[in-house]
Design a protein around this nucleic acid. Structure first.
Lengths: 340, 340
DNA sequence: CTGTTAATGACAACCGATTGCCAAATGATT
DNA sequence: AATCATTTGGCAATCGGTTGTCATTAACAG
């Protein structure tokens, strides 16, 4: 029985199986996907043949005839941003567990690439997960009407979303800085098209007003360590004693620049980051930052999307999930200069 | 003319276009893929209709009938390892430029996952790029016979490969340490299944013998920062004054552990990493490491694979590409203790 | 022993393209 | 004007499955 055509190089099809078992191709298809619609002994023969031929269903053909692709697109603005590493890993694991394939696309921080990718994915994926979308609310809503979608860190009415609650963590960060004696604080903003950046700023300035301290907004800065240099210079020039950066990349970049300029952290200026990405714990000094359950966010996003795709079990799928965050204090924040 | 069925929600097909233009579907197909096989005016009409309907070819159908999927699988052992970030970005950019889609898969450092992924990709991808394969030479060779493949950092006769020449960089690192007065040096090994680790060790011990210094091998250690703690303890316990780690993750983890234990770097012990990943420049102290052109390696791998897929232009495709590396000296290496 | 029902499996259409083959149309040639 | 070469474009098969329809069969109740 081991002598089956080892010479036939190309993958086995249901037709090969059907020929061997003397049944119709459709019977094979049913035996494999709807087992109880087929005689148990026939099924056994078919399964045996399939195993022997090392049969794997052709996903293209499956997708074409059934309409389901078994793939989910994951769109991120920048693959090399460590923030997305954990996110990608979270989606990957959860998708694989559910038998789906992940199509990862780097949209290069471009709304156009993002939009065209969505249009293409409409045919080749069953749904998409969009992280930190750069699209307008309208465009996003329109796209969501064409393909099942879950967004991450982008809240638009009508589109299921996973939101990491960094805004509320910013007030924690603010209180932390205030308790250290800081009164002149800056927010180093991220891209103008980033909703997260806007929400963080809104939360921060509201909290600042509430506490009666001054917080000014600087930037915008690109979410890369290289931008940290400009951010550091801007912060120093503005005369603040502490700053809260849009994300860890900017914060880490600031740390490097401040060190170059001989400005001590946290003695001369305190720096707070956001996301707690890879590297935040071993930079110099270690970064005080708002920790986000990023990988978990990815998993939740997948769960929400799959619930949307297979509305079987009555469990009403939530359309919005808020992930909690908390401040992780490390060495980059300290007492304000002049404080005893 | 703007009044075309806006209500029809599903994507346009060549049949829709054919109906509008009053030609056969095959003519549409030809007009779009073999323009000169079709009358220029007919083609113009078809193109106009296609544009108006916002037509995008269905990639599944295309793949099914043509046999080409337009996708390339990229297999990495661990998505969250920063080393692969740049690699992935390199492949992504080059693939997109060539009109291919990237299917990224995390094989979880498992040879079984790797093998089964390859089998599946055989139908859904035109070729694959395998980074740091954990498979045996035989398995890899067998797989390469079934699907066009290019490996990265894995040299097996008969399989096109991109190899980052870290082994030769290890002698540079060794000379660097020797010139600083170190004579007792350790190599903190990576996974046993990693060919890179073995090659580096071979190159290193050969060079050490040549220079007449002692280099011992410790480990193996998993390529994660967490393993750095064990590596640091092992290094300290062995009494060496310098060590060369399999990669930056281990090195950075060592840095953290040594700091915890109050052991100064580089005063008490010097540490050299490998790869120059994200974080190597801003850890504390900044890491001396062997810099690799990782993103470029990804691009080259894609080029080699595509040359293999489309052997059109006579340019004989090389089957092996060696990427140069160099030592980047930062703060984690210094004079051996006891040296003046 | 017959009638009814449920289980079973074969047939064929279809998903959306590609592509070989052939016929019609065009144009050039003599 | 008739003939031949060359375009041009339609038909239909094909890729590998899924799925609706329907005939057949077996099992059971009466």
């Amino acid at each position: 029985m081991a002598m089956q055509a080892a010479g036939t190089d190309r993958p086995a099809t249901i037709h090969d199986i059907a020929a061997i078992c003397g049944v119709a191709a459709s019977t094979v298809s049913r035996a494999l996907s709807t087992p109880d619609r087929v005689n148990i002994r026939t099924r056994a023969r078919i399964e045996a043949a399939a195993a022997e031929l090392n049969y794997t269903p052709n996903s293209q053909a499956k997708a074409l005839s059934s309409g389901r692709t078994g793939a989910v697109g994951v769109l991120v603005p920048d693959i090399t941003n460590p923030f997305y590493f954990d996110l990608i890993r979270g989606t990957q694991l959860q998708l694989k567990a559910a038998g789906y394939t992940q199509l990862l696309v780097d949209t290069e921080e471009s709304d156009e690439v993002e939009a065209s990718t969505m249009e293409q994915l409409r045919k080749s994926a069953d749904g998409i997960i969009v992280a930190a979308s750069r699209l307008s609310d309208e465009a996003l809503l329109a796209a969501a009407a064409r393909i099942p979608m879950v967004t991450i860190n982008r809240d638009v009415a009508g589109v299921p979303a996973v939101v990491i609650d960094t805004p509320s963590a910013t007030s924690q960060a603010l209180d932390h800085l205030i308790s250290l004696g800081h009164t002149r604080i800056a927010y180093m903003a991220g891209p103008l098209t980033s909703q997260s950046s806007t929400l963080r700023w809104n939360a921060l300035s509201a909290a600042a007003e509430d506490r009666g301290v001054e917080v000014r907004r600087l930037g915008p800065f690109a979410p890369k360590t290289q931008s940290g240099a400009a951010a550091a210079d801007a912060a120093v020039h503005s005369g603040v004693t502490a700053c809260i950066a849009f994300n860890d990349l900017i914060a880490i970049g600031m740390l490097q620049r401040l060190r170059e300029r001989g400005i001590r952290v946290p003695e001369d200026i305190s720096v707070v980051g956001c996301d707690d990405i890879f590297g935040a714990d071993f930079c110099n000094p270690p970064l005080t930052t708002m920790a986000s359950p990023i990988e978990q966010a990815g998993r939740v996003a997948v769960s929400m999307l799959l619930a949307q795709l297979n509305p079987l079990a009555g469990g009403g799928s939530r359309s919005r999930s808020l992930m909690p965050t908390h401040l992780t204090v490390r060495g980059s924040t300290g007492a304000a200069p002049g404080t005893l």
